[in-house]
Design a protein around this nucleic acid. Structure first.
Length: 477
DNA sequence: ATAGGGTTAG
């Protein structure tokens, strides 16, 4: 969009064609949304039936556009539309769409919308299916609305629908996460009365809730009772308990539990995985018991369990926080990479990120530069944080030099468009027109959006380079 | 149903 404002500033003669092309592209994607939105405005009865009869091909951008237009004043219509769209065969809302719907329709701030829609369904005698219920429950889950989810659960019989385990699990998880374990447990007991049986997922939500509330005994009691319902304790559930014990700080018990999980006679159902080991390592690091954390890494390696990026970043942070010795860090990184599962890039990037978070900026910059010297490519987060810091310090020329070096190593960009824009603007404002022009070209090559508000300054600086080729390319984006 | 660490796209 702002590239277009650049072309306007640059030379009016170039702008007509590209603008027409993009206008055309927008109008084809909007037509489906137009049809649907217009219909929402006109409906009197049978909204859902009529929407279906329009036979519009649904996709996420069209659904997004419709709910966006319903934004401030027509949230209820927007919600009804979103629910209808989700029930259409051939379309399934992505998790991204659920977050968008919650955002645009302000479901969290206005949870009564859900009840209003159901009232309309009843009044207009709309068909409400299990699929409808599933979509509404997913919305409640996204918006973390436990009470509303329970209200929806209670509406199943009103529409002659049977509640299933998936629906119960969703509501139970919401209450358990909220810390209302009384209600969560009540619902779990209620499942039996509906010929439903709690499964491993139900138990895991409950156990997680009890552990977060510091009630490890209650969590154990549940775990012991799982077999009553034919459920077998597995790695995920057991690791939840172990996590709770870690949080309580009793690392001796944690080691006993870990040993229990490692025993062969459990048939491997609860054998620890990378997440389990990482939780234990994290527990020791938080208690500043780094040596023991490192021993857990060895133990993990002996059992053939590979560390991952989380394991690496937890350990590296632990070592950086507790040791002055650079040797320890490089020994650790060597070991991690030798075990496999993480790369040098993962390790050095993690170290850079940890140092920045610990406000040890000079060491972070050294680490970042060392990485480049050794030909190791920094990951996206490390780049973002380093460039953000350099921009705050107004060291735009350094940004450019580092950027150039990273670009030489590889073509795939790990730096987001906003940072590109900030660096570009900084270079322009500090009179580094040549560098700005080179960065602008690189951005054009990547088809990157230019989202800065100081387009005028950028254009003026770029004009100074007298680079006609660049000007032409900017104007024909 | 599994942790953690930014941003983008859909």
């Amino acid at each position: 969009m702002l590239i277009q404002s650049i072309s306007r500033l640059l030379s009016p003669s170039f702008q007509s064609q590209p603008l027409k092309i993009s206008a055309l592209r927008i109008s084809t994607t909007l037509s489906a949304a137009d049809t649907l939105y217009d219909h929402l405005q006109e409906y009197t009865t049978n909204l859902e039936k009529d929407l279906t009869s329009l036979k519009v091909k649904l996709d996420s951008s069209c659904i997004n556009e419709v709910i966006k237009r319903c934004n401030p004043n027509q949230s209820q219509l927007g919600l009804r539309f979103f629910i209808w769209a989700g029930t259409q065969s051939g379309h399934r809302h992505s998790p991204y769409m659920y977050t968008k719907a919650c955002d645009f329709l302000k479901i969290r701030a206005n949870p009564d919308l859900i009840k209003d829609v159901f009232e309309a369904y009843l009044k207009e005698e709309c068909l409400v299916s299990v699929k409808t219920m599933r979509i509404v429950l997913s919305l409640c889950s996204q918006a973390k609305l436990a009470d509303e989810a329970l209200w929806v659960l209670r509406k199943f019989p009103v529409f002659d629908l049977c509640v299933d385990t998936v629906a119960y699990n969703l509501v139970i998880r919401l209450f358990a996460d909220k810390g209302d374990l009384y209600m969560a447990e009540k619902l779990m007991k209620e499942m039996d009365c509906n010929d439903l049986c709690p499964d491993v997922i139900t138990y895991t939500s409950m156990i997680n809730g009890f552990c977060n509330a510091g009630k490890i005994d209650e969590a154990w009691k549940l775990a012991k009772g799982m077999s009553k319902h034919g459920c077998v304790l597995n790695t995920v559930t057991y690791s939840r308990i172990l996590e709770g014990v870690c949080k309580s700080g009793d690392m001796e018990t944690v080691l006993e539990l870990l040993a229990e999980m490692e025993k062969e006679d459990c048939g491997g159902f609860i054998s620890p995985n990378a997440v389990t080991y990482t939780l234990v390592i994290q527990g020791f690091c938080e208690k500043k018991r780094i040596r023991e954390a490192l021993m857990v890494l060895d133990r993990m390696g002996e059992r053939g369990c590979l560390p991952n990026r989380v394991t690496a970043s937890v350990l590296i942070q632990g070592v950086l926080q507790n040791d002055e010795d650079v040797e320890d860090l490089s020994k650790l990184i060597d070991k991690l990479v030798k075990l496999g599962g993480v790369s040098l890039s993962d390790c050095f990037s993690s170290a850079t990120v940890s140092l920045i978070r610990m406000k040890r900026w000079e060491e972070a910059e050294k680490m970042f530069r060392l990485m480049l010297v050794r030909g190791i490519r920094p990951d996206g987060l490390a780049c973002t944080l380093v460039f953000r810091e350099l921009c705050l310090l107004e060291r735009y020329l350094d940004c450019f030099l580092l950027y150039d070096e990273i670009e030489k190593a590889d073509v795939k960009s790990t730096i987001d468009s906003n940072i590109h824009s900030v660096i570009l603007l900084g270079l322009c404002e500090h009179g580094h027109s040549w560098e700005a022009a080179k960065l602008a070209k690189s951005m054009l090559d990547k088809k990157m959006r230019l989202n800065v508000s100081h387009i005028g300054n950028i254009i003026e600086a770029l004009k100074k380079t007298g680079d006609e080729d660049l000007m032409r390319r900017l104007s024909t984006v």
